[in-house]
């Protein structure tokens, strides 16, 4: 689907099978299966406590699921991420994956300058030449619309929207193939949200990224996601094309969710 990266379109980038996570007797998420294809944006929606963040954490390797497979199309072919050694998984997470947290403070180093936040990720994948690192950091600050003269400022001096854009620059500078996003526009003013949505859409298209976005905001997924999964009580109750799920929801819960949105 993308013209940027010659990837095999007949193989999913990520294939998830029977993923289950329990918290003692309670279910975090249960029996989740889906494929994510190259260049595709998958939205996961559901109310608080529906298990969508647990699922995202299991996929991204932040939580260890109890059962299931997470098969990623690595350069050397499909591999179950859950069977990898810790060091190998960390390497994959640095080079091929990115994770955008809802709270930028969780994804940034607040004591390091904006340029340092971006450059650090480049160094983690082997960049050593200071001039190159600085040049790429500057380029990325521009792409996320942060003025270049702020490069030596710390993120603590930035607004919430700027911090979120910086977190995105830090995550995308290494050219990942898969981005996990947890409520990326949550906690931002609507005008700032729109700007971020525009930015994310452009980056997804230009870089041919695949992304999994967890949110409770149906307007956000309508504009960003190709496909939608609706979760309730830890299980997927409905999935399909985004506009099909929103315009012609089949499950009782999805119908309730869609009809509960306030019209502006």
């Amino acid at each position: 689907m993308t013209l940027m990266q010659p990837v095999a379109l007949d193989t999913p980038l990520l294939a998830v099978r029977g993923l289950t996570k329990r918290y003692g007797p309670r279910i975090g998420c249960a029996d989740i299966s889906f494929d994510l294809w190259p260049g595709e944006v998958l939205g996961i929606v559901g109310e608080s406590g529906s298990g969508k963040s647990t699922l995202l954490s299991c996929l991204a390797g932040h939580l260890r699921p109890d059962e299931g497979e997470v098969i990623f199309a690595t350069e050397d072919g499909p591999r179950d991420v859950l069977q990898m050694a810790e060091a190998e998984r960390r390497r994959l997470a640095r080079s091929d994956w990115a994770f955008v947290h809802q709270n930028p403070r969780d994804g940034l180093r607040m004591g390091v300058t904006a340029g340092g936040n971006v450059g650090e990720r480049l160094m983690a994948v082997g960049a050593r030449h200071y001039g190159d690192i600085r040049a790429r950091a500057t380029d990325w600050l521009g792409r996320v619309e942060i003025a270049v003269e702020r490069i030596d400022d710390r993120p603590s001096a930035f607004s919430g929207g700027m911090q979120q854009r910086l977190q995105i620059a830090r995550n995308l500078v290494t050219g990942p193939r898969l981005v996990f996003m947890d409520e990326p526009t949550g906690g931002l003013d609507v005008s700032v949200q729109a700007r971020l949505l525009d930015l994310l859409r452009g980056l997804v298209r230009e870089m041919g990224l695949s992304a999994i976005i967890v949110t409770h905001d149906l307007a956000v997924v309508r504009l960003l996601a190709d496909r939608l999964m609706v979760m309730k009580s830890g299980r997927v109750v409905e999935q399909g094309l985004t506009d099909q799920v929103l315009d012609d929801p089949q499950h009782a819960y999805t119908q309730l969710l869609v009809s509960s949105v306030l019209q502006v």
Partner: peptide
């Protein structure tokens, strides 16, 4: 028309 477009099942 929406069924042809695919947003109605």
């Amino acid at each position: 028309m929406r069924m042809i477009w695919g947003n109605y099942l």
